[in-house]
Amino acid sequence: MRKAIVGAGLLLGLAGCAGAQRVPTEQLVDSQVSIRQAEEAGAESVPDAAQHLQWAKEQTREAQRLLEHNERDKAALFLKRAEADAELALALAREAPARAEADRILQQVQQLQQGTVQ
Rank of each mutant, 00 (worst) to 15 (best):
A43H: 07
F78H: 11
A93E: 10
K57H: 09
V23T: 09
V46E: 05
L90G: 01
F78V: 04
L10R: 08
A75I: 09
E62M: 02
A20I: 02
E58R: 12
S34W: 01
L66S: 03
G115A: 06
E83G: 13
A4D: 15
R81Y: 05
V23L: 15
K3S: 13
E68C: 00
V6F: 04
W55E: 12
A89T: 11
K3A: 14
D103H: 11
A56Q: 05
A86W: 05
Q118V: 01
A15D: 00
I105S: 02
L14V: 14
Q59S: 09
H52T: 07
Q110P: 06
V29P: 06
R22Q: 15
Q107D: 06
A100K: 07
K3T: 11
Q54V: 03
S31Y: 10
A63L: 08
K80T: 14
Q32D: 14
C17L: 14
L77D: 10
L66T: 07
G7W: 00
A56W: 01
Q111F: 02
F78I: 05
R104T: 14
G115M: 07
A89N: 00
L66N: 02
E62I: 08
S31Q: 11
A76E: 04
P97V: 12
D48E: 15
A75E: 00
R81D: 12
A49H: 10
Q32C: 15
G13W: 06
G13R: 02
R81C: 00
G16S: 12
T25A: 09
A82I: 10
A63G: 11
A4S: 11
A100S: 08
A93N: 12
L88M: 04
R2H: 14
W55D: 12
